[in-house]
């Protein structure tokens, strides 16, 4: 493979890795359009390569935050159950629904989530009293304080993750952009813990999908390898940047990201990209 092409792919991977580590998104919203429009891959090839990049990005960030206790593995394992089931159902149903309808619905969800994160204050209760199975804590890197929180609306949130998984598999976009607001707004998980738990979950979802593409021979190894290297490096950079952001800034930047994602999705729905 041409060294210049490898370098370009590494840079794309790095950019997405930084975004993924900061906000708990996979980066498919960056990878897939860039790989198809700029690098000329077919849609299936782009998705396969994108999944490997997403794995590298999420695993890189998750390995850092799991070690520090910020990513909530327990919650991630639970939510991933319904996400995975939703994704399987979504993949089966997607063939019967017009893609533009799915994308418009997805964009509406993203805009609603962005508005909620802007106008609805974070409802994380740190006065959680005694410990129980729903109480967790982590050390905030920004100020060194130990933050405790108690999960709320566990079962509604878990059920809604099925919808997130279905929408993600039907549109190929944005599991993290749905799950992070879901955890933060509905389940009362602090934004930093929510984004890093999402990072942990996204890798699992992407790994399952990537194995299937590998088995079907759709994966381009050179592209996947270069993207993965860049995404891993980017994820480490992103974790260092994230440590300097406070929670309110993260929510604000995440809201902007959601609106950008919604715009890209609407452009895709209209056939412009």
């Amino acid at each position: 493979m041409d060294p210049v092409l490898i370098a370009e792919l590494v840079v794309v991977g790095m950019g997405s890795g930084i975004l993924g580590a900061l906000f708990g998104i996979g980066g498919g919203i960056v990878f897939v359009p860039v790989l198809t429009v700029i690098f000329g891959l077919l849609a299936g090839e782009a998705v396969a390569v994108s999944l490997v990049g997403i794995i590298a990005s999420s695993a890189g960030a998750a390995s850092y935050y799991v070690g520090k206790g910020v990513a909530n593995i327990r919650l991630g394992l639970l939510l991933e159950i319904t996400t995975a089931v939703g994704a399987m159902v979504g993949a089966a149903v997607a063939a019967y629904i017009e893609n533009w309808i799915l994308l418009v619905i997805f964009a509406i969800v993203e805009i609603y989530s962005a508005a909620s994160m802007i106008f609805v204050p974070e409802r994380v209760s740190e006065d959680v009293g005694t410990d129980d199975a729903l109480t967790f804590s982590y050390k905030d890197e920004k100020d060194g304080a130990v933050r405790r929180y108690r999960l709320g609306n566990l079962w509604p949130g878990t059920a809604l993750c099925a919808a997130a998984g279905a929408m993600s598999s039907m549109t190929g976009v944005g599991g993290g952009t749905v799950k992070v607001p879901l955890m933060n707004i509905l389940m009362h998980v602090p934004i930093r813990a929510a984004s890093n738990t999402s990072n942990y979950m996204i890798g699992i979802t992407a790994a399952s999908g990537a194995i299937i593409y590998l088995a079907h021979g759709t994966l381009l190894p050179d592209y996947a390898a270069a993207i993965a290297i860049g995404a891993l490096v980017g994820s480490y950079i992103g974790t260092r940047i994230s440590a300097k952001l406070n929670a309110s800034s993260m929510r604000r930047y995440f809201s902007v990201l959601l609106l950008v994602v919604a715009g890209i999705i609407l452009l895709e729905a209209g056939g412009y990209i």
Binding site: I55, A59, G203, L214, A228
Partner: peptide, 14 residues
């Protein structure tokens, strides 16, 4: 081998 190792890492983590 590298690609497969990256892909199975999250599942091994689970």
């Amino acid at each position: 081998a590298g690609i497969v190792m990256v892909m199975v890492t999250p599942l091994a983590g689970v």
